[in-house]
Design a protein around this nucleic acid. Structure first.
Length: 315
DNA sequence: AAAGACACCAACCGCCCAACC
DNA sequence: TGGTTGGGCGGTTGGTGTCTT
């Protein structure tokens, strides 16, 4: 594993994180902030590699994570962004406050991909499956989800994308809905250690609001950490801190400075400063997802390819 | 009730890149 | 300038829960 092999020598733990490990990491980060990840395990008393700690913090422990089910707006946003930037999950996640790239990636692979296929849309090209028929026949198509597709040599099936041979999936809207519900319930019920619970608690105390850069919050509150009466196993069924209408968020390790405004659904709407990411994705976001658009400014500031323009019109 | 199939997701792996020396 | 290190990212995998037979 290259440079990380050094951690293997020190017998780092792997696999699922225990609540105790979460507690250690959470307490450390909330007290000292995010610095050098490679030194975090040692300082926090963990037998993990720094990379693993970083991932755990980013994907699970971070207080500003939203978690819970994806809203319809978020789903649409992901699909739209994916059409523009493809599998650049980090870029997509950057536009969805409280969501991680990993979460979005998983959601895409487990839900949205199938949803699109069910609608007769190729999740990779975002074009009708029938259009991709020829292309697929010419290329070695290894996509896992696409392997679920019916045999494309049968044109009748192409025109009836809902008629899958699979015993389980894609036979009805109800099944899909049920599956989605199940997965969403899992998403919520799997939590064991829930820092968000604490965070919500503190958010009620902190008049500044929950989305103020958590380093500020951490540095300004040395007592922030585990409540003495915290019980493992407690979980919140849905964290609706995103419902706070206005918030600010910045990323600690990035030169990007974002001052974002979020809709009630948690979608970042506007006001991005010094955002140096792909112009394509910015172009999309600069126009409120709720539908206001200004094509003149759009074309002046952000030249688009024909395909991207299609996306724009789609919005 | 049990076994197998399937779906989901947390976490790992490996690559890349920027910063630093 | 080249080597090293740390962080970020996307792809993949393994564990676990749920469903079906």
């Amino acid at each position: 594993m290259g440079r990380h092999s050094v951690f293997v020598k020190e017998k780092t733990r792997k696999g699922l994180w225990s609540p105790e490990e979460d507690e250690k990491l959470y307490n450390y980060i909330t007290r000292f902030g995010v610095g050098c990840w490679s030194s975090v395990p040692k300082l926090a008393g963990l037998q993990r590699c720094g990379k693993s700690c970083r991932l755990r913090w980013i994907n699970y422990l971070r207080p500003d994570l939203k978690r819970g089910m994806f809203s319809q707006e978020e789903e649409d946003m992901i699909i739209t962004l994916h059409k523009v930037v493809g599998n650049r999950w980090a870029q997509i996640a950057a536009k969805l406050p409280g969501r991680t790239d990993n979460e979005i990636k998983n959601f895409w692979n487990s839900n949205l991909k199938k949803k699109l296929i069910k609608q007769g849309i190729d999740p990779n090209t975002h074009k009708p499956l029938s259009e991709n028929h020829q292309v697929r026949n010419e290329t070695n198509y290894t996509d896992k989800a696409s392997s679920l597709l019916p045999n494309m040599s049968n044109s009748a099936e192409i025109e009836q994308p809902f008629h899958f041979n699979s015993k389980r999936s894609f036979n009805s809207e109800a099944i899909t809905r049920q599956l989605t519900e199940v997965s969403r319930n899992q998403l919520v019920s799997k939590q064991v250690f829930d820092p968000l619970f604490l965070y919500e608690f503190q958010a009620n105390v902190n008049p500044i609001g929950p989305y103020v850069h958590h380093h500020n919050q951490i540095e300004g509150n040395q007592d922030f950490g585990f409540c003495s009466n915290f019980q493992h196993g407690h979980m919140t069924t849905e964290s609706d801190i995103s419902d706070s209408s206005t918030s600010r968020m910045s990323t600690s390790n990035s030169s990007n400075t974002m001052i974002s405004h979020y809709s009630s659904a948690g979608i970042q709407i506007n006001e991005m400063l010094e955002w140096d990411a792909d112009n394509k994705i910015d172009s999309l976001i600069q126009y409120p997802y709720v539908g206001i658009k200004n094509e003149e400014n759009f074309s002046n500031n952000n030249p688009l390819s024909g395909e991207n323009l299609d996306v724009f019109h789609h919005i």
